[in-house]
Amino acid sequence: MMAVVATAMVVQRNLFAVVVLGGIYSFLMATALVALDAVDVAMTEASVGAGISTVLLLGALHLVRGDEARPLGRPWFPLAVSIAAGGVLVYGTLGLSAFSDADAPIHRHVAPRYIEQAMKETGVPNVVTAVLASYRGYDTLGETTVVFTAGIGVIALLRQRRRKDRDRK
């Protein structure tokens, strides 16, 4: 079902329909993630993909025309690159350990230390918060910077347009 929606998004030339289909795709993706027990990721997918992205894409759609231009040539080379990348990713999943395997490397490398030492080393009672804010502090700082910059860019683009509208009236 998700493949059908994605194909329709590629083929469809009306950008408004593409935005609506993108929201639908996000809801399907979030449902699939819940079925895989990744509840927090599903939550993010639903709020970002179906909520904020739809709103922001509609705001961007207001700045451009509603129909996509016909492509100039046949995009065979990007298609080949996409299929190759997908094939490599599928090949990579063959090397993963079994689903919910307790002996997988991710559960044996640093996770026990996080669980046992986090309180002593950082003084933060919540393990997830300790990992994000202390062990991976610089990583989180970088992510926050990226999100902040993107937010400033979006606000600048949408505000400018509104002020121009008001001057015209």
Partner: peptide, 15 residues
């Protein structure tokens, strides 16, 4: 999800 669905639909219709 229900709340987000509402926000998305209102955004589409308002647009």
């Amino acid at each position: 999800y229900g709340l987000l669905n509402l926000v998305g639909t209102i955004a589409v219709l308002k647009f």
